[in-house]
């Protein structure tokens, strides 16, 4: 009795602490992003830039790079959602459960192999360039967190709730739609956030298949030994990743089912 009381109390303080940490992050992270972006831009634009640097450090080029980067990340997110969530749902159904390890293994290979390797291999095989040549391999690379979290999210739903749902007359599909999926949403969103942050990071490599993005600045800066361009590209990529991570957290906060927080 006493030991459980102590345990609950400790659990409560831990929850309190995570709550505090997450509300601090909710508040501080966007400020950090703004400070980073403003800081690096002011720094870059106020420097003495030579002709080559000026070709990269100007508003249209920077906006273009950021836009391309966002488009790649968005396409990847959409593809991951379209592929991984339904696949996760199917693989947790009784009749498909046996094949789950196969798909998990494939997704694990995707994540474990170096992103640049997948990107280049896909380019060599397909011969494509641009947006899709970047988005498809990055999708493969970021599939695993969402797939695994969708499966875990569905598996951790209390079987008694599924039983109750069937027992009062819901069809298997209704139980999935009204009980299992809503209860798995927090984990799916957490997986999606991880996947997105990966995607923003890996999208810097899109430049190698002519996909544009902030990788362009990093690549130019490195090859032409222009440190300003290199730093601007890197810092903007970091800021973008932090921003996406923050958006994901906000989404988790507001899209998760009420009543279980």
């Amino acid at each position: 009795m006493t030991s459980t009381a102590v345990a609950t109390e400790r659990g409560a303080t831990e929850r309190e602490e995570t709550k505090k940490a997450s509300s601090l992050r909710m508040f501080a992270q966007p400020i950090v992003v703004v400070v980073l972006v403003v800081g690096v831009l002011v720094w870059a634009f106020t420097r003495d830039l030579d002709a080559i640097e000026k070709q990269s450090i100007n508003a249209p080029v920077l906006l273009d790079a950021v836009w391309d980067h966002l488009v790649i990340s968005f396409v990847v997110t959409a593809l991951v959602l379209i592929i991984a969530v339904p696949l996760g749902i199917v693989l947790t159904r009784q009749w498909a459960r046996a094949s789950a390890p196969v798909f998990l293994a494939i997704a694990t290979i995707g994540q474990a192999s170096p992103a640049i390797g997948i990107l280049v291999l896909f380019f060599l095989v397909s011969g494509w360039e641009g947006l899709w040549a970047a988005a498809l391999p990055i999708t493969f690379y970021t599939l695993l967190p969402v797939l695994r979290n969708t499966m875990v999210g569905l598996q951790q739903v209390d079987p008694a709730l599924v039983d109750a749902g069937r027992g009062i007359g819901m069809s298997a599909f209704a139980v999935l739609r009204r009980i299992e999926i809503p209860l798995a949403v927090p984990l799916i969103l957490a997986g999606l956030r991880t996947a997105l942050v990966h995607a923003v990071g890996v999208a810097t490599m899109a430049v190698f298949v002519n996909g544009g993005g902030l990788g362009l600045l990093i690549d130019t800066g490195y090859k032409l030994s222009r440190i300003t361009v290199l730093i601007t590209g890197s810092v903007l990529a970091v800021a973008l990743a932090l921003l996406v991570d923050w958006l994901g957290t906000v989404a988790e906060q507001y899209l998760g089912p009420k009543g279980i927080r």
Partner: peptide, 16 residues
């Protein structure tokens, strides 16, 4: 099943 009431241990209420 919609015509048969069903109550289980720990109620099995949908938490969301």
């Amino acid at each position: 099943r919609r015509t048969i009431g069903y109550a289980i241990q720990q109620a099995g209420l949908f938490p969301h």
